[in-house]
Design a protein around this nucleic acid. Sequence first.
DNA 1: ATAGATGCAAATGTTTTGCAGGAAA
DNA 2: TTTCCTGCAAAACATTTGCATCTAT
Lengths: 147, 147
Amino acid sequence: MSNDLEQKALASYLEDHNLKHTKQREAILDVFLDIHGHITSEALYQKVRDNHPGIGYTTVYRTMKLLCDAGLAIERHFDDGVTRYEIEHEHHDHLVCVRCGKIVEFECQMIEKAQDDIVERYGFRLLRHRHELYGHCTDCQGREGRS
Amino acid sequence: MSNDLEQKALASYLEDHNLKHTKQREAILDVFLDIHGHITSEALYQKVRDNHPGIGYTTVYRTMKLLCDAGLAIERHFDDGVTRYEIEHEHHDHLVCVRCGKIVEFECQMIEKAQDDIVERYGFRLLRHRHELYGHCTDCQGREGRS
DNA sequence: ATAGATGCAAATGTTTTGCAGGAAA
DNA sequence: TTTCCTGCAAAACATTTGCATCTAT
């Protein structure tokens, strides 16, 4: 098992919450961790089935929600109505190529700071934000087509 | 008719595109313009029905898409999976209260500039962006509850 | 007369839920 | 042996589409 640390984190989350450690949960976490990047529910389900044919769609959905609660995954929603998951790591936002679907992560202190100022100006208490830039990546510029 | 300017814009858009000017389209635009703010498809449909009981859900959806194409409305998607529409006006982003649903518009040159820098750094060509800050508004801070 | 619009019902696509059977503690 | 999980099928939910009918031009 190559993702030992995360498997342990999952195990202790399950234990703490009186949930059960099942082979499905272990398998889904394992497949998910090997992806790196931003995977859709559908694609993740397919990958899971490759190695574990018995696992159902429902279990993948439920398990990914569990992994989010456990702090191992993050759910993302870009502009195409499909849920994507990524491995939880330090905060960042996204650049999305609307032609090839490439997703690049970025991080900008100046923007974070500006957000804080805005939130303060309006008297809000900030919980989270969502900042996505949509455009064409280097490879896709000059191309006519779509997707 | 209080929204004369926009009705004329609609009329000329329809004419230019060989589409027909119907009482439904006129009525929906009129109701929409009187809203100000960010209205969901559902709420808009209800409002439309108040004054025009015959109009169907489908027509509201189709007409709002038309109004977007005509540059009179903008479609927004926040984090709750429901489409909202607002009157097209100068560019801005949004602050959303996750308790009461209040939506506040903001605009920040510094952020816009920072975005351009990021996009350039990654070689992207920017088409649009989406920037939403989620939190609790002044009125909702200190409240326990939800929604 | 005819291209285009409407409204209903049915379809869609994604995610969630009910439930009976199955596995972990 | 009880509690929690699983997988299937069905439901949910917001939106879209097919189609027969109707209407603006």
